[in-house]
Design a protein around this nucleic acid. Structure first.
Length: 834
RNA sequence: GCGAGAGUGGCGGAACAGGCAGACGCACUGGACUUAGGAUCCAGCGGUUUUACCGUGGGGGUUCGAAUCCCCCCUCUCGCACCA
C-alpha cells in the first residue's frame, strides 16, 4: 500500500475550508442553552506582517477558545485590527499614498496570514476602528463625556514628542522617552483635551482587588503604583504680608513642628506675588527660567543636585507660629500635590540636603524608638522612620501614627488643614496633532466658543482626499474643506477641531463592539453586551500593563455611568504572555534575529508552529526560539500521523476513554488504558484549569510512546484494538485545540463522522488509573536504597516487613536499631535507624 | 533605594499536597536498518575517585524526609523612583 505522507500544506487548507463552509466558529448570543465564554487576544496593529509574538499570543488564545468549545461553552472568539496610528501616516508619506490605503492593504495580507494558522475566529465580526462605522461611536462617547464634564479642554504643560510631532499621555512616556520612538519628550504649553480619568482613580484602585486571582499580581501592582494613592493632609501656611495661604500636601503631618522652611515649585502660581517686593527679582527670574527650561527628565533625576533660591517672603508654621522662609526649589514638582512642600529637614533626605546647602535650621521632631534623639547638627541622613514625637509641644512622647491622627484633628479644628488624598494619576490627554485617528467632534466659533458637533451630524469623517505633508504634520489644519464649517448654534462661519483622538481610545472599547460589531443604530446591542461581557479570558503582552489595560478599565466605568451597561470591569481573567526571543534577545530587524512565521508555516505547517509555540515554555514565560527544537515538534506530529495510518486496519472510532470491562483486559492492555486515563487527567488539569499547555503536550507525547512501542502485541491481543483505538482517540482529542488540522484529518481517517471541533472533552475514569502493582521506594534515614514492586492494596505491616527483608536494605540497617518506620501508601517507606 | 518575580543537566523546561529530582523535548553518544541518512527504530545521556558519594544560586534551620516550608545572604529580570 502506498504510504500517505503527512502534508501539512494540503490538509491545513482543506480543514480551514471545511470550518469556513460549515460556519464552525460563527456564534450568536441568541437561542443557545450553553453557557457563554468570551476569549479575546489583544488585536494587532496592521503593520504589514504578523510576527512570532502574534503567533504565540493568538495560538494561546485559540487553544483557550477551542478547548472551551469542547467543554460545551458557547464561545465568542473575534479578531480585528488596531488600525489607527502613526506608522500608517509615515508609510503614506513615504509611498505618496493615503494612510487608509496602506492600512487596508496590510489588513488584507495579515488576515490571510492568520487564516493560514487556522485560528477559530468568527471572521464575521472582524472590525477596524479606522472605519467611520466604528469611530463614529467614539465621537458620540466624546459628546456624552463632554455633557457630563468627563472631558475638558485646558492649557497645560504637556508631553511633546518632536519625532512623532504630537503630544503624548503621561502613560505613553517611559523614563522621559516616547513609548513608540524613544525620542526624548519635551514639555510644551498647549491647549488640549483631557479625559477625567482621575475622577475614577479611587474606583480603579479599589476594583483591582476584585481582579486579584484573575489578573497577574504583577500587573495589579503596576497599576496600583501608577495610580499612586497617598493619604495625608493639606495644610495651609499663611504668608506674611499677603492675604494668602500656601497649601501643601504632606503624608508626614506628624512632623509639622519640624517644618523650618517652605519649598515651592518654580512654576507655582503664587511666585510672582511672593517676589514682588524683592530687589533681587532678576536673579530669581533667572533661576526660574533655568529650572523650567531644563528637560523634565534631567530635572527630576535623583542625582540632580538640589538647588533653590530664597523668595524674600515668609510664611507661618500653623503649629509653632514660627516664621518659615519660602524658597523655590528645583526638585519640587508643580504637577504633584499642590506644588508646594513643607520642608522638614530632619526627617526628609531632600529637605536635609537643601537645608545644609542654604544653611537652614534643622529641628528633630521624631525620636527613634530604640535610640537617643539625634543631634540636628550632626545629622547627615534624615530620619524618615516612625518613632516618638519630640519638640512637638503637647504631642511629645506619642508614637508617630497616633500623632498623625491627633495633629489632623487639631489642624481641622483650627481650620488650618484637612485630611486629604492625593493621586499620582493625572487626567488623560487625548488630543493628538496627527491625521490618522478619530477626529475630535468639536467646532470653534468666534461667537459661541467651543461647540460640540451635534450627535446627528456624526460621524465627522476623516477626509479621504487629504495629502500628507512631508514633514509628518497633520494635513487637517491646512485642509479648508475639512476645517471650514458653520457653527451649529449661530450658523456663522466656524472652524473644526483638527486634533484627533489618541488611538488608545479605540482599543478601550473594541471588546464590547465585538459583541455586535455591525450594529448601525447604536454603539452596542444591550442584549449582546449583557450576554457576552465581561471578556472571560483576555490575552496579550505585559507592555500594556498600564496603558491599554488602565484606559479600558476606565472606559468601562465611564460608559457604565453614561448608561450603556452595568459592567464594572472589562476583563475577568488576564494572561500576559512572555516574549518570543531568539539568541536571548527580543526579535528585531536591527538585530537580524527575526524568525518569519510565514516561512515556518511553509516549512513545517501551521500545526507544528502552533505546537512548538505552546510546547517550548509555559505561556507567561519568555520563549526562546530554537530552529532545531521546532523540528522536534514536527517529528512528533509525523510520528502521530504514521501511527494512525499504520494502524488503520486495526483501529475504529470507538471514542476517547471508552469504558471497558476491566477484568477482561490483559495486563498490557490495562497498562495502556491506565496511561491513557492518566494522560487525560493531567492534560485536563493543565490545559483547562491552568492554561499550561507545555505539560499537557508532554502528557500526550508520553502516551504516544507506549502506543508506538506496544502496538504490535496489542494488535493481536483480545481487546488490544479497542484499547489502541481509545488511546489514539484521546490523543487526538486532547491535541485538537493545539494542532487542529492534523487532528481533524486523523480523526476522520479513524472513521469519525463529526468534526473534532464539536466533540466533547472526555472524562477520565479514576478506576482506570488504578494499577495492579505499584513501585514503592525504600529509604533508610531518608536516603534512597531500594525499590520494590508490590500490589497496590498491600497491607501496611506486610509491606514494612517486606522492606526490612529487602537485600539492599538489610545491608544498610545491619547492626542498627530500627527506631521508626514511615510508610506513604503506594509511594515510599522510610526506615529510620540509629 | 522601594515593590514584584525568578535562580533546577550542555539547552528549553517538569516535579499535583513536604515523599523516587531532572517528566517531555532539543542537542549529543552508541547501535540497527540502509547504496546513502540530515528519514525511521533501539539504547544511553546531572557530576564524581561509581559496592558509594555529591547534586535544584550560597549558608543555616524545621522535618523521618526539603527544589518545595522558615531565617540570612548572593545574582538576575521586570516595574516604580527627588511623588513631599
Amino acid at each position: 500500500m502506498q504510504e500517505r505522507r503527512y502534508s501539512p500544506e494540503e490538509i491545513e487548507k482543506k480543514w480551514q475550508q471545511i470550518w469556513e463552509d460549515q460556519k464552525t466558529f460563527e456564534v450568536t448570543h441568541k437561542s443557545t442553552d450553553r453557557p457563554k465564554y468570551y476569549v479575546l487576544e489583544m488585536f494587532p496593529y496592521p503593520s504589514g506582517r504578523i510576527h512570532m509574538g502574534h503567533v504565540r499570543n493568538y495560538s494561546i488564545g485559540d487553544v483557550g477558545a477551542r478547548m472551551k468549545m469542547m467543554q460545551g461553552y458557547n464561545v465568542l472568539h473575534p479578531m480585528g485590527w488596531d488600525a489607527f496610528g502613526m506608522p500608517a501616516e509615515n508609510a503614506a508619506i513615504k509611498n505618496n499614498t493615503h494612510p487608509a490605503h496602506w492600512t487596508y492593504h496590510n489588513i488584507d495580507y495579515m488576515r490571510d496570514e492568520l487564516k493560514r494558522l487556522g485560528y477559530s475566529y468568527d471572521w464575521n465580526r472582524e472590525l477596524a476602528p479606522c472605519h467611520p462605522g466604528y469611530y463614529q461611536w467614539e465621537q458620540l462617547f466624546f459628546l456624552k463625556f463632554y455633557e457630563k464634564g468627563l472631558v475638558y479642554r485646558k492649557k497645560a504643560p504637556v508631553n511633546w514628542c518632536p519625532t512623532c510631532v504630537t503630544v503624548l499621555a503621561n502613560e505613553q512616556v517611559e523614563a522621559g522617552q516616547c513609548w513608540r520612538c524613544d525620542a526624548m519628550v519635551e514639555k510644551r504649553e498647549l491647549s488640549q483635551w483631557f479625559l477625567r480619568i482621575t475622577d475614577y482613580a479611587e474606583e480603579l484602585l479599589k476594583d483591582l482587588d476584585k481582579l486579584s486571582g484573575g489578573w497577574p499580581e504583577r500587573v495589579i501592582s503596576m497599576q496600583k503604583n501608577w495610580i499612586g494613592k497617598r493619604t495625608g493632609m493639606e495644610i495651609d501656611f499663611p504668608v506674611q504680608g499677603l492675604d494668602e495661604k500656601i497649601t501643601v500636601f504632606t503624608t508626614r503631618h506628624d512632623t509639622l513642628f519640624g517644618a523650618t522652611f517652605m519649598s515651592l515649585a518654580p512654576e507655582h502660581e503664587m511666585v510672582p506675588r511672593l517676589i514682588r517686593d524683592n530687589p533681587d527679582q532678576e536673579e530669581i527670574r533667572d533661576f526660574i527660567a533655568r529650572t523650567t527650561s531644563q528637560e523634565h527628565e534631567e530635572r527630576t533625576a535623583e542625582d540632580t543636585e538640589k538647588e533653590g533660591i530664597f523668595t524674600g517672603s515668609y510664611c507661618l508654621n500653623p503649629a509653632t507660629g514660627e516664621k518659615m522662609p519660602i524658597y523655590l526649589a528645583n526638585f519640587v514638582l508643580a504637577e504633584y500635590g499642590t506644588g508646594a512642600v513643607m520642608a522638614v529637614p530632619a526627617h526628609d533626605q531632600r529637605d536635609l540636603e537643601f537645608a545644609r546647602k542654604y544653611s537652614l535650621p534643622v529641628r528633630v521632631v521624631v525620636r527613634p524608638l530604640e535610640m537617643d534623639e539625634p543631634l540636628p547638627e550632626h545629622m547627615d541622613k534624615a530620619f524618615a522612620e516612625p518613632g516618638l514625637a519630640v519638640n512637638s509641644g503637647r504631642f511629645n512622647n506619642k508614637p508617630t501614627l497616633q500623632v498623625q491622627e491627633e495633629i489632623a484633628d487639631y489642624l481641622e479644628d483650627l481650620q488650618a488643614g484637612r485630611r486629604a488624598v492625593n493621586y499620582r494619576l493625572r487626567d488623560w490627554n487625548i488630543s493628538r496633532q496627527r491625521f490618522w485617528g478619530a477626529p475630535i467632534p468639536v467646532i470653534y466659533c468666534d461667537k459661541c466658543g467651543i461647540v460640540p458637533v451635534p450627535a446627528g451630524d456624526l460621524p465627522v469623517v476623516l477626509p479621504q482626499d487629504a495629502e500628507m505633508p512631508r514633514d509628518g504634520r497633520s494635513p487637517l489644519p491646512d485642509l479648508e474643506s475639512f476645517v471650514q464649517t458653520d457653527c451649529p448654534e449661530c450658523g456663522n462661519k466656524a472652524r473644526r477641531e483638527t486634533d484627533t483622538m489618541d488611538t488608545f481610545g479605540e482599543s478601550s472599547w473594541y471588546f464590547a463592539r465585538f459583541t455586535q460589531p455591525r450594529k448601525e443604530d447604536g454603539a452596542f446591542d444591550s442584549e449582546a453586551v449583557q450576554y457576552w461581557l465581561p471578556v472571560d479570558q483576555y490575552i496579550g503582552g505585559i507592555e500594556h500593563a498600564i496603558l491599554h489595560l488602565l484606559y479600558a478599565r476606565f472606559f468601562v466605568k465611564a460608559l457604565r455611568d453614561i448608561g450603556y451597561w452595568d459592567l464594572n470591569e472589562p476583563f475577568a481573567n488576564l494572561l500576559t504572555q512572555g516574549m518570543v526571543l531568539k539568541d536571548g534577545a527580543k526579535m528585531s530587524k536591527s538585530k537580524g534575529n527575526v524568525v518569519d512565521p510565514d516561512e515556518m508555516i511553509r516549512r513545517f505547517g501551521a500545526d507544528t508552529v502552533r505546537l512548538y509555540c505552546l510546547f517550548a515554555s509555559p505561556p507567561e514565560k519568555d520563549l526562546e526560539w530554537s530552529d532545531s527544537a521546532i523540528e522536534g515538534s514536527y517529528r512528533f506530529l509525523n510520528r502521530l500521523w504514521r501511527l494512525v495510518h499504520e494502524l488503520s486496519g486495526v483501529i475504529s472510532p470507538v471514542g476517547p476513554c471508552i469504558s471497558m470491562e476491566e477484568h477482561s483486559l490483559t495486563p498490557e492492555e490495562k497498562d495502556l488504558r491506565a496511561a491513557e486515563h492518566e494522560a487525560l487527567r493531567r492534560a485536563t488539569r493543565d490545559m483547562l484549569d491552568k492554561f499550561q499547555f507545555n505539560t499537557a503536550i508532554a502528557a500526550c507525547m508520553e502516551l504516544l510512546n507506549p502506543i508506538g512501542q506496544q502496538r504490535q502485541s496489542l494488535k493481536a491481543s483480545p481487546s488490544g484494538p479497542q484499547v489502541l483505538s481509545s488511546a489514539l482517540s484521546t490523543v487526538l482529542t486532547v491535541l485538537a485545540p493545539i494542532t487542529p488540522h492534523i487532528c481533524e484529518e486523523l480523526w476522520a481517517h479513524m472513521g469519525y463522522k463529526q468534526s473534532l471541533a464539536w466533540s466533547r472533552w472526555p472524562d477520565y475514569d479514576p478506576r482506570a488509573l488504578v494499577r495492579q502493582e505499584t513501585t514503592v521506594v525504600i529509604q533508610v534515614n531518608g536516603k534512597l536504597r531500594s525499590s520494590i514492586s508490590v500490589p497496590v492494596d498491600m497491607d501496611q505491616e506486610e509491606l514494612k516487613s517486606m522492606c526490612l527483608n529487602d537485600e539492599k536494605v538489610k545491608k544498610h540497617i545491619q547492626g542498627k536499631k530500627v527506631v521508626k518506620m514511615i510508610a506513604v501508601p503506594q509511594k515510599l517507606v522510610n526506615i529510620v535507624v540509629r
